[in-house]
Computed example of a mutant assay.
Amino acid sequence: MRAALAARAKMERLLAAPTPFASDDGSADPAVTAALEDTGLERHLRLDRLWAALTAGRLIVPVAAHARPGRGAAGRADDSGRAGAPAREPRAEDPARDAAALAVDLPDGRRALPVFTSAAAMTAWRSDVRPVPVDPRRAARLAVVETDRLWILDPGTRDLRLPRPAVVALAEGRDWTPSWRNEPVQADIAARLDAVEGVVGVAFEPGAAVELRIFIRVAASGGADAAATMEACRRVMADPAWADLVDAVELCPLPERS
């Protein structure tokens, strides 16, 4: 009885604790909606605007109606919340951490934390979870610790993957500068690629479907093999050291000017 009363008192303290989202009605931030719907901007500028709006407000993460999934006698995971379902593990004091149990598997094999612009968008994805409003930096830290340092925005409707360098920078309390306008990052990439045999020039621009497009001018003479040169450049860009600085890139070979 004493333990039960203590647990109840603790829960009441947690419920009574002030939260900046106490009056949150679950609707989308108008600035975020405007950024998402601004189809007049090029992709990279639209993403810039969206990121600024997302990080200036709040996000919603999903939490199962009960605690993290348990396992029944047959060893099957069960997170349905139905009456009579197997007992769950105790919920963490920070309910947002339970959102990691609902991480989304991406086509490339990585896992991303699902984050939502509104409670309605979350319900469209799954009706058996409840919304928890969180500070974006808290959601970024959760993604870094519990997933592959990725967010997926409004899975089930928009399925928009946010760049990993942006999530990592937010988690660390830094401003995110995308690689298409990050001159120090570009200078480092150019130095590494210029060292590849057959490369005679490197240039950059925002990508149409990726964060950064890299133009590589390949020597047209001197015995250089263009295919081998490009393969060596791909190996350079596959270095894990770039992972937190540059999101997806596209390498575009160009012939040497005559």
Rank of each mutant, 00 (worst) to 15 (best):
A67M: 05
G201F: 08
A139R: 04
S127K: 13
W180V: 04
V145N: 09
V134E: 01
L5Y: 03
E183C: 00
V200D: 04
A16D: 02
V185H: 01
D78R: 14
P178Q: 00
D24H: 01
P253R: 13
T229H: 11
A31R: 15
D239M: 07
R161I: 14
W180H: 11
A31Q: 11
A238F: 09
V249M: 12
P107Y: 13
D194I: 05
I216Y: 02
M11K: 15
G198T: 02
A101G: 13
G40T: 05
S221K: 12
V246L: 08
V134Q: 01
F215S: 15
E197M: 13
T33H: 02
A67P: 05
D105C: 07
A87H: 12
A9T: 07
L36R: 02
W125F: 05
P20G: 05
R130I: 15
D159V: 01
R181C: 06
D159G: 11
L102M: 09
P255A: 13
D175F: 00
P178F: 00
A31D: 08
R110K: 15
R235E: 13
R137H: 07
P240W: 05
R137P: 09
R97H: 14
V200Q: 06
D38W: 05
A238V: 10
V134K: 01
R161M: 10
L193N: 09
L193A: 08
R158H: 05
A171S: 09
E172D: 14
V185A: 10
R58A: 00
A224I: 15
A35M: 07
M11P: 01
E256M: 11
V132N: 05
A34I: 00
V236S: 15
W125D: 06
L36N: 03
W242F: 08
W125Q: 04
G222W: 14
L245P: 10
S258Y: 14
R158Y: 01
V167G: 00
V218N: 08
A228R: 15
P107M: 11
